[in-house]
Structure formats: C-alpha cells, structure tokens
Amino acid sequence: MKGREATTPGWLGILPGTALVVLFLIPFGIMLAVSVAQRETGGFYQWGFDLSGYQRFLSAFFGGVLLTSVGIAAGTAAIAVALALPFTVILAGLSRRTQTAILVVLLSVLSLSEVIVGFSVSTLLSQTAGVGNILAWLGLTAEARAYTPSLFALMTGLTYLSFPYAVLVLYPPVARLDPELAQAARTMGASPLRTFFSVTMPLLRAPLLGALILVFVFALGSYLLPQVLGRPEHWTLSVHITDQAIYQSNLPFAAAMAAFLLLVALAMVGVALLLAREKGDRA
C-alpha cells in the first residue's frame, strides 16, 4: 500500500496510545519513583531520593532469595522445555483435528489460575485424596502420607503450569520446520530418534534457547505456587515483593525489588526476542 492513502485514519492510534501510556507506562514510572522514596513507618512513603531499598539487595537474605528464585525458575524451565520439545515435534506432525484438540487442552491448563493449579496439585499429593493414598493401597508404602508442601510438590506444580506455555512457545517454530528435511533423513535410513537428534534439534537451537528464557521468566513470576506447595524457604522474589508491599507496608523496598526484577526480565525477554528474529531472518 505504498504511495496511496493509508488504510486506516491517523487518529485511530490516539486512543490505544493514550490508554497504554497512562495506564501502563505511568504506573511503571511511579513505581520507579517509589523505589527511591523514603519509607515512612506505619504509613506509605514520602518522595525523596533514598537508595536504601536498593542497598538491601546486598544483604545475605536478599542474595538467598534471589538464588532460590533463579534456581527454581531455571530448574522449571529446563524440565518443562525438555518435556515440551519432543511433545511439540510430535504434536506438529498430527492431523489438524488432533492438534486442535490437544491445543484446547493445553490452553485450558495454561489459563488455569495458579490458585487452582496449587489447590489441585496439593490435593493430588495430599494424604487423603491422592498419590499417597494410591501408593498405600498398592502396598508400595506402609501408610498414606502427604507429599506437600515440599520442593518436589512445588516443582511439580511449576512444571504443570509451565509445560503448556513451553509447548505454545515452541509450537510456531516447530510447525514452521520443513517436514521434508526430517522425511529425507528418514528415507536415507535414519531412525526416528536419530533424525530427532541430528536433524530436528540443531534446526531448533535458537527457538529452544528462546523458549528456555521465556519459560524461565514465566516461572520467575510465579507467586502463589511457592506459598501453596512450597515451604517458606522456597519463597521466590515475587512472593517477597508482595509480602513487603502488602504485609510489611514497605512499598519502597518492594518497588526496588520489582524494578530489579523488571530489569532482569526485560533483558532476558529482549535476548529471547532477538533469538527469535535471527531465526526468522535465516528461514
């Protein structure tokens, strides 16, 4: 549509532009301002330039929280993507009907509230209604026991929540892969597994890395599962941000932590998007 009137009138962008700037950028700006505000005991805060919120990052407590969050999120990303990659490759080769049905299941699980996933997984791992019960009934364990709260329960819940996300992130690049490449390998006598590892995997290196990062950021944002399924030592940065903001009434410190998380997430998402673009250029 070059050299002629654009398809849409120019004023059309004003409404969404204003809405996003006012309701999205300004809140972030205020948050950054609050992160350097002075904390007032009992109340909220007073504007100022106080870096004590950021200084607390250097404490051993904060270091521990950060390490826990990163460890849990990285573990989740690795497990979810490892499970999702073969799943997605097989999914993309199925008929459209089957693909649609499986996508409906994945989307439904993905949009489930963290509260509901937490409740479901903790019920599944509980003493009276779940795995413990079944194992005892089978005679594998002496008596039914609960497997929650624990790190295992938390990782199960996070993987449950992240797996559909990982599949949906991997789905476009995998579906775009030329099926003839794998077919050619198979015709020349390569086994399905060998084809997967020597043809499919290398083609997907960039999307895989991108998916790992996106799932990592996704898991980093989990807030309820650590509280429902984990123990206090498994609380992530997201939990501590809310805890500081709501229960400790320390908005400046909460905002400083959020600003830090924002920087980390932005940098990582940026890298992931670059990886996706690079791939798109080559294709």
């Binding site: 309701l23 999205f24 300004i26 809140p27 972030f28 205020i30 948050m31 609050v34 996106l214 950021v217 980093l220 944002g221 807030y223 997201s238 941000i241 809310t242 903001a245 908005l251 909460a254 905002a255 959020a258 998380l261 924002l262 997430a265 932005l266 998402v269």
Partner: peptide, 17 residues
Amino acid sequence: APFMLPPVITALGFLVF
C-alpha cells in the same frame, strides 16, 4: 509487554498508581 513480564511487576505498578 504486560504479558512478557512477571505479573507481580505490573501488579505493583498498578498498586502504586
């Protein structure tokens, strides 16, 4: 952007706003 970032950041942004 809101969807790519950990939601707690957006939530805190809205809270102070």
